[in-house]
Amino acid sequence: MKRMVMAACAAAFSVAGVHLANAEGEPIVIGVASGQTGTLAPWDQGAARGAELAVEDINAKGGVLGRPLKLVVRDTKSDPSLGPTVALEVLDAGAEMVLVACDYDFGAPAALATISAGKIAIASCAADAKFGVQGVGPKAFTMSLATNGQGALLAEFATEQAGWDKVYIMKDTAIEYTKSLCDNFRKRWVELKGEDSIVGEDTWNGLNDNAIAGQISRIKAASSANFVMWCGFTNNGSMMRQVRSAGIDLPILASESMDGSHWIDAVPDLSNFYIAVYASIYGNDPEPRIADFMKKYEAKYKEPAKMGHVVTGYTAVEAWAHGAEKAGSLDPDAIKAAMETFSNEPLLTGGSTFTPELHINLNTPMLMMKATNGKFEPLGRRAAEKVDPPQF
């Protein structure tokens, strides 16, 4: 009997192996409608490349429902007003799912056009919790950790650092992500350290402002500050260069919007800089699957990834494929329902959880890294111990 069971299992595995090795039929189109050029290019181009690697890996294992995947990429030029037009281009090319920009403000217009056409839209890394059921629509998902989780994670990390008792908060008001990141950091920090531990708060607009001389003067005047919470995004690194050039050498704490090698040259020998990222791009990620992915990326594109967000592009396709396989169908409503059952679903970036009410993760771990003399070292992955759910 034991031999018969083993033989039956071997036969089943062999049949499955044939299926997995031979994806056939008309390709299933995955569309990308995001900023391949312009402001969001460092995020969105990398996410599109990550999606391409996911398509290759999934096809090598037999595709989705036995059919191969095909990627169609179009450029919004990082202009939200072009989002609907570009989304319709990939939908006209047959897209069953559309990957949109790594931001609520930039990605929502393309996502709205996609779900209006009855298809699922997934943002590679829009982290404002409005990207989902409440702010875009029932078929909108994002692979990001919500700013609720990111802000709480960073606040808890900061409380564990020796001497980090007083914070100066710098908030970029250009996009919803940076505003809600600071708001959620502030809320958790005050819970842990009290209102008096905030010695200064300032704002700027990363899309419109070229200089922050006034803000720098006020940081210098806040002599009791032990560190700066930096809720901004990279652009060309000019803001961070201004801070360090002014002689402010306080620890600076930031999140994944400041990830990337594309701006580091603007701040030579960057030090005392701490950041939460989805993946290390420096060949030292402690998670073996992500480290292997980064090797594949460099081998394919002949250069290292510029931002860790390449893994969220991969995960977006991976998540949709898991949903289609669970549903046993390409019907968008069935895939949506299947994705809403994800509970710590094993994906490249870690366990992913969705519900009918929340299409964004709250507890996915992020990798903390520290820069010293321009070199980044991993400090380990962590998730927040306490995350308040989004309020809409």
Rank of each mutant, 00 (worst) to 15 (best):
M1W: 01
K2L: 13
A12L: 15
A12F: 14
F13T: 10
S14L: 15
A16D: 05
N22H: 15
S34K: 09
S34N: 14
G35M: 01
G38R: 11
T39N: 08
L40A: 08
P42A: 02
P42S: 02
G46P: 04
A51H: 04
A51L: 02
L53S: 11
A54R: 05
E56H: 05
G62R: 11
G63V: 13
V64H: 14
L65H: 15
R67H: 13
P68W: 14
L71V: 03
L71H: 06
V73G: 02
D75L: 06
D75T: 07
T76A: 10
T76C: 13
S78K: 11
V86I: 13
L88Y: 06
E89Y: 10
V100E: 03
A101Y: 02
D103V: 11
F106P: 08
G107V: 07
A111E: 08
T114W: 01
I115H: 02
I115S: 05
G118S: 02
K119Y: 03
A127C: 14
K139G: 03
K139E: 06
T142G: 02
M143S: 01
L145N: 06
A162C: 02
W164H: 04
K166N: 15
Y168T: 11
K171W: 00
A174G: 04
L181W: 07
K187S: 13
L192W: 03
S197K: 04
I198C: 03
G200I: 11
G200Q: 12
T203I: 14
N205P: 07
G206E: 01
D209K: 10
A211N: 12
I212W: 10
A213L: 11
S217V: 09
F227N: 01
V228K: 09
N235D: 04
G237K: 10
G237S: 08
G237Y: 12
G237F: 13
M239L: 11
Q242A: 13
V243K: 05
G247Y: 01
D249E: 15
L253F: 12
G260D: 05
S261Y: 01
V267D: 02
V267K: 00
P268A: 11
A276M: 02
A276D: 08
V277M: 00
V277D: 00
G283F: 00
I290Q: 09
D292E: 15
F293R: 11
M294F: 10
Y301E: 03
P304I: 05
V310N: 09
T312L: 15
G313P: 13
Y314P: 13
V317A: 01
V317C: 00
W320N: 04
H322T: 07
A327G: 13
L330V: 11
K336G: 00
A338C: 02
S343E: 05
L347I: 06
L347V: 09
L348W: 12
G351R: 08
T355S: 01
P356V: 01
E357G: 09
L358W: 06
H359C: 07
N361H: 07
N361S: 12
T364F: 00
P365E: 02
M368L: 13
A371L: 10
N373S: 08
G374Q: 06
G380E: 07
E385L: 10
E385Y: 03
P389S: 05
P389T: 08
Q391T: 14
Q391V: 15
